[in-house]
Design a protein around this nucleic acid. Structure first.
Lengths: 243, 243
DNA sequence: ATAATCCGACCGTCCGACAATTATGCCCAA
DNA sequence: TTGGGCATAATTGTCGGACGGTCGGATTAT
């Protein structure tokens, strides 16, 4: 039997205020860089208390829609910083107990595509960034954290070089999840360092020469190696990723 | 010349409180379902005012780390809802003025992979969900919003059937960006409806029969069609997606 | 035991206040 | 006229207290 009434939805004032401001931002009525009215003024406009406005502002600040430059007092509308967004996503993924296999499969879908696009569209600057990441990896031989950071930086550089911000923002959260895994792996599988360096060099070369298929296939091989390393390290693929 | 000092970082109390609670959640010391202490109690523990605690709580609530069931008063730890996370991502992407081409390239990377995994791992329940989405699309002939909703539901169902939450959470934001685009397209390109239906049927069949390559290639064709439709509709690929 | 009732705890919101810091406008000097 | 410096106003972060309304749990009545 169908109920006669729907459950009534309650919208606290702080949420309504947040939504109102968010709408103005999404609809570009407030644009990045614009200063937000003062809390007191907003409270007056919305007809609520300043405390309520503050709670709303915290929400938007968390979403990265509001922020301020260092040392500034007044809040301004800002574009959400990609790192901020992706760290939220990776935290959510980690809490959902995703496994290495989940992560790997998704990387396997995204990274080769990014590599191919990078080979197609990279600028000289992108190439320099890739080279720098490769250098860092080579330089950080024994230093595991630095090694891992360099690998992540390399992936990020490929994503940037792809010229596709959607791809980059989709890929970024995976990098953060990769860190703890990779740290463990490069320690447990000594030969992985050399294989990673080889793959990175090959990818850089392919991207420099704008050879799309070559870049893609090297990236595939590179990522397949991760799984292999994981297996060699003796860790079940179903182990949950932790941040 | 390097500066001698780093800029001093200021951490307002509300942020420190939020971080402290977040850490306990990420480290599983507080687990999903656990009730949070009352605001008054938290204020006492942290030695700050209740208003400050509330601002911190808003932050965590926004991240989806805290929430409450309908009609509940006590706040409890919750797993971030995927829809909540992905809507934040898609909003960020939209604000960054990503183009249809960006979106399309990423779909082209993710969706075929999802289809392939779905063919490999789908449960009977997944299959039912796919069929339901297909039905909805067929039934919603002239109703554009319903059509678009059905297409999105289909993609989401494929992602779920893939059994890979990372893939699903990576793909979900794209769906939201797709809606406005697709609405425009199915109106401007009448034949798109039939093509979509054909592709969906083929994918369902392939996934039912667990034919991975078939599922993948039909998905590729399906998504390629989007681009074709976009071109037929006469819209430049570089047009920014808007939410 | 179950249902109706009651009371205390807690949340949402408001008011007012104060210190610290930033923004602003004014005045003076070059 | 313009630039710098200073006094003042404005704004944020935090605090204390308050109040109505709602939820949860204990109490009591059936």
């Amino acid at each position: 039997m169908n109920d006669l009434f729907e459950p009534v939805e309650v919208h606290p004032a702080y949420r309504q205020v947040a939504n109102a401001i968010e709408r103005k931002i999404v609809e570009r009525e407030l644009r990045a860089g614009d200063a937000l009215p003062s809390e007191t003024d907003l409270a007056r406009q919305f007809g609520v208390n300043r405390s309520t406005v503050r709670e709303a502002i915290r929400e938007l600040e968390t979403h990265g829609l509001l922020g301020r430059q260092r040392g500034e007092k007044r809040l301004r509308v800002t574009l959400p910083r990609p790192e901020q967004v992706s760290s939220g996503v990776s935290r959510a993924m980690a809490l959902h107990d995703v496994t290495f296999l989940d992560l790997w499969e998704t990387m396997m879908a995204l990274e080769p595509a990014a590599a191919e696009l990078a080979a197609q569209r990279r600028s000289d600057q992108d190439l320099a960034a890739l080279g720098a990441a490769g250098e860092k990896f080579s330089a950080a031989q024994a230093d595991t954290p630095a090694c891992v950071a360099a690998v992540v930086e390399f992936f990020a550089a490929v994503a940037v070089a792809s010229g596709n911000p959607v791809l980059a923002m989709s890929q970024a959260p995976l990098n953060e999840l990769l860190v703890p895994i990779l740290s463990h792996m490069v320690d447990a599988v000594p030969q992985s360092r050399a294989r990673i360096r080889t793959a990175q060099s090959a990818m850089i070369a392919a991207i420099r020469k704008r050879r799309r298929e070559e870049a893609r296939s090297w990236m595939e091989k590179h990522i397949r190696d991760f799984k292999r390393g994981y297996e060699i390290a003796g860790i079940p693929l179903q182990f949950s990723v932790r941040l």
